[in-house]
Amino acid sequence: MTALVLIEIENGKVRQASRSAIAAASRFGEVDALLLGEAGAEAASKLAGIRKVLHVPALKHALAEPAAALLAGLAGSYSHVLSAASSSGKNILPRLAGLLDAQPISDVIAIQDESTFVRPIYAGNALATVQSSDSVKIMTIRSSSFDPVAEDGGSAPVEVLDAPAEDGKSSFIRLDQSQSDRPELEVARVVISGGKGLKDASNFHTLLEPVADKLGAAIGASRAAVDSGFAPNEMQVGQTGKVVAPELYIATGLSGAIQHLAGMKDSRVIVAINIDPEAPIFKVADYGMVGDLFEILPALAKAL
């Protein structure tokens, strides 16, 4: 059996989430990587554990319509088609499944055998074991559940493919990227996140950044903090935002709603700092501190 993994490039490197998807795919047999867009062929060919790279430079923006059409043409040669459960993977793979009349399997966290998988449902409040009877199994992989393959060590051949003819119904206009010097949320070893308790956007910077700087941490936010305009939405951790599982997760000024817990409760060590001793976040925290974060966070930055 051979699996095909749709990979993504960021800043010239293969995204960690894609490398996790390759690790998951290797459970099924040999793995080919599919790369859309001009950049990244060299980085992709160095990936550990892949047979070859299929490179489609013409699909610059990985729009779902041509990407799914391309995948539909390739899928017949594969037993499994995977991607990271990233915004791109979630956009393209279900469309592929629609073209093939298959049922995609979203956010896989464990693989039991070639057709049996575990995935969270109800915001991670339950884990469903599911069995697929589709001839080609299409799935997205939760990156925090699989250790990524190495970025280098391989030397896979690169095969350039033509893009399918576009139907002209969709076009890319622009990408507004958010700027950040901090580690990517999903791969950071330490994450410190803030909720509504931070009271405004400037406190988000003045209170969280000094601690994050000391720890080399990424900064996250609860949905309430994002909705209140304290932080941009790509910082949102939760069911409807990013799912993280760092070594250390520090939750400050957030209650720990189900929606937020779904995005961080697999972190190795959780610290909660909250003024309300009854906040649900304390039920999942390894270390809790009840008190005023406006006093605790500066003291923490100083003590580190």
Binding site: A102, Q103, I105, T116, P120, I121, G124, N125, A126, L127, A128, T129, V130, Q131, S132, S133, D134, K265, I270, V271, F282, K283, V284, A285, D286, Y287, G288, M289, V290, I296, A299, L300, A303, L304
Partner: peptide
């Protein structure tokens, strides 16, 4: 096409401890 074999509770986290000071936390 996707049969649900079983649905289970996620593993529970162990109860944590409350610390009193920042120094103790660090």
């Amino acid at each position: 096409r996707l049969k649900i074999v079983s649905v289970a509770e996620p593993p529970e986290r162990k109860a944590g401890v409350i610390v009193e000071t920042v120094d103790e936390l660090v």
